[in-house]
């Protein structure tokens, strides 16, 4: 699976560009490039539903972030990379990768999942839920309460956005 490595390294490069570039609009567009790379990875990993959703969500979030950054005058401050930050970054990355390497060693190897519940869903989807798409049968039938909770979170977030951005009732 060499193509997975190539796209993932491309995503890492785009993420570093998004982190380090000065211009905010360019940073948001580089984040969009990371999201498109993630869409390609989902397609390669046989998850077409996720690829469609990720593409739509990526476009929407880039539009929202461009709305937040366009027309904003950010003064060109030349932030010097201080030595303390650099040491912090090195220590952080080293500790994180050390513990993640030990954790990854315990996981099942790539391409060989456990599938204790997944195989059950795979065999029962047609007879119990009557759906050809197994992912749809999981989110809408077997685990419908999760989807109800997701709808609640979305509703709460929309109420939060409306409360923060409403024009009336604001002190001048």
């Amino acid at each position: 699976m060499i193509e997975l490595h190539v796209v993932l390294i491309l995503m890492i490069i785009c993420a570093i560009v998004a982190m380090e570039i000065k211009d905010l609009l360019s940073s948001v567009i580089a984040l969009g490039a990371v999201g498109i790379g993630l869409t390609v990875e989902f397609l390669l990993l046989r998850a077409p539903d996720l690829a469609i959703t990720q593409l739509v969500v990526e476009i929407l979030s880039v539009i929202i972030l461009i709305r937040a950054t366009v027309g904003v005058k950010v003064p060109q401050e030349n932030i010097k990379m201080r030595l303390g930050y650099f040491i912090f970054a090195l220590v952080f990355v080293a500790v994180f990768l050390f513990f993640s390497k030990r954790a990854v060693a315990q996981l099942p190897s790539f391409g060989d999942p456990m599938m204790k519940i997944g195989s059950l869903y795979n065999s029962l989807a047609l007879s119990k839920a009557g759906a050809a798409n197994i992912v749809s049968s999981v989110i809408l039938d077997f685990r419908a309460y999760d989807t109800l909770g997701e709808a609640t979170v979305l509703f709460t977030a929309v109420i939060g956005v409306l409360t923060v951005l409403r024009a009336s009732g604001r002190k001048k």
């Binding site: 990993l45 979030s61 709305r67 937040a68 197994i134 992912v135 999760d146 997701e150 979170v153 923060v164």
Partner: peptide, 26 residues
């Protein structure tokens, strides 16, 4: 087939990520 359970969970997570991004941008 590949495992459908992580795909179903992450489908929820992606949409919640959009909501969180919108709230933070607001």
């Amino acid at each position: 087939f590949v495992d459908p359970l992580p795909q179903a969970l992450i489908l929820t997570s992606i949409v919640i990520g959009l909501a969180v991004t919108a709230l933070m941008a607001a």
